[in-house]
Design a binder for these strands. Structure first.
Lengths: 137, 137
DNA sequence: GACATGTGTCAGTTTTCTTTGACAGGTGTT
DNA sequence: AACACCTGTCAAAGAAAACTGACACATGTC
């Protein structure tokens, strides 16, 4: 069974951060109706090209859209984007599992980050993890 | 058929923006193991109380956690937080549907935003919405 | 009273994200 | 050559988010 094989913390974080933006949501929506190239997509949505370019590479880094540079009939190079068939589920358990594999550094380009929760000292380990301290009854 | 009744654009946006943050993911993860109060939760995660307070009210505004001010045995007022049993699905279609109901203003308090895509002029309405312009073959 | 615990908020700084405008190059048509 | 398209990048401005420290209040114990 491998519908959604438990995404990495950093992976899911990138997806959520990418989708948590009105412009990027509209970009995904626009690409859901069919592939499109950058200049035209910018005109359709109504934002500037450099801005769309930034949003697109953010979505692509999260694996939500894929772009391919193609050559049209008249030899013009144009970059087409289309949505990737993603499917994520958001539940407390999935978030909890993902947070366990969070490097909190940047992306997947910093191998020196899996220490082991460095300064994780517990000054007063309460036996009841959901009750108030109750200093003296 | 009503497992996830198609969230509002602004609703889903708030959820995604709230979850797209490493600290807030850890907060949800910590609360998944059981309810907890603010001061202790701040110690557990390792962030300052004012910061945790800010993140918590962001998560609560998104409907991901719920807080309730209770009184402990010794009369101290303490605010307990617990995760809300949320369950969202993220697919291109759901994002597309949600983006249709985006106000893009702030929250659900600006009814003057559904103009009709103001400056949406089409200088050259291409008959093929997914093909290059192809000016002259 | 002094201390330790809990709550909340505020102003100010730092950091990050978003956005714009200008520039570089490429092609093909008039 | 000049124009109309397409591509990409950069530096700088603007806006928004994140973070900190100090303050306010409350309660119960030493």
């Amino acid at each position: 069974m491998g519908s959604v094989p438990a995404p990495t913390g950093d992976d899911l974080l990138k997806v959520l951060a990418a989708l948590g933006n009105p412009h990027r949501m509209r970009i995904v929506a626009a690409l859901t109706e069919g592939r499109n190239y950058v200049s035209r997509l910018a005109r359709d949505i109504g934002i500037s090209r450099p801005l769309l370019h930034m949003h697109l590479q953010r979505l692509e880094a999260a694996g939500l859209v894929v772009g391919s540079l193609e050559l049209s009939d008249d030899g013009k190079a144009m970059k087409f984007f289309e949505v990737a068939p993603f499917a994520h589920s958001l539940t407390p358990e999935i978030i909890a599992a993902a947070s366990a594999t969070l490097t909190d550094s940047g992306a997947a380009s910093d191998p020196a980050a899996e220490r082991a929760t460095p300064g994780k000292r517990q000054p007063a380990p309460e036996p009841t993890p959901a009750q108030p301290p109750n200093p003296s009854p």
